[in-house]
Amino acid sequence: MKVFLLTLASAFLVILLINVGYYGVWFREKPRSYWFSFLKEKDDTTAEEGIKNARYGISYTISMRVKAFLEKKRLPNAIVLFEPNSYYRDSLHIYNSVRAPEPAVFYYYTGLTGVWTNSPDVNKANFIVHITRTKGVTIEEIHTPERLQQILAGFKKYPPIL
């Protein structure tokens, strides 16, 4: 009987804890929601690539589009310049939804060399990724050093940020 009463007490404490104040909010938004994700994920046949796409979001999608583009062009040694994130923040106002990957993470995603406007190898960049509100993601080949300098000059007032 005493064990039964103690069991009731512990059950009551557990129910109270997972419903009270912030614990209730957290339990619904995190573990419970993760459980519903699990129910979908366990039957999902998505390969590793699909899982990464869903998990890493836009930055990964952009990186993989660049990779696909360069593979199609058979340019595995291309050096890709990314626009500064401060440009997305201060000029395009899309910083909350779009971020250019930092070179280390871009390399992790794709195995390709990426540079930012302050990278030591920025002068070797031969492609640039443009992101705009209207056109989305476009990749421009930089044909001449003059064009590269023109691009870099345009971003002078936008320092690279994460």
Partner: peptide
């Protein structure tokens, strides 16, 4: 490995 050949300024 080759990761160290990348520009690691930001990290």
């Amino acid at each position: 490995n080759s990761f160290f050949d990348v520009d690691l300024w930001s990290t």
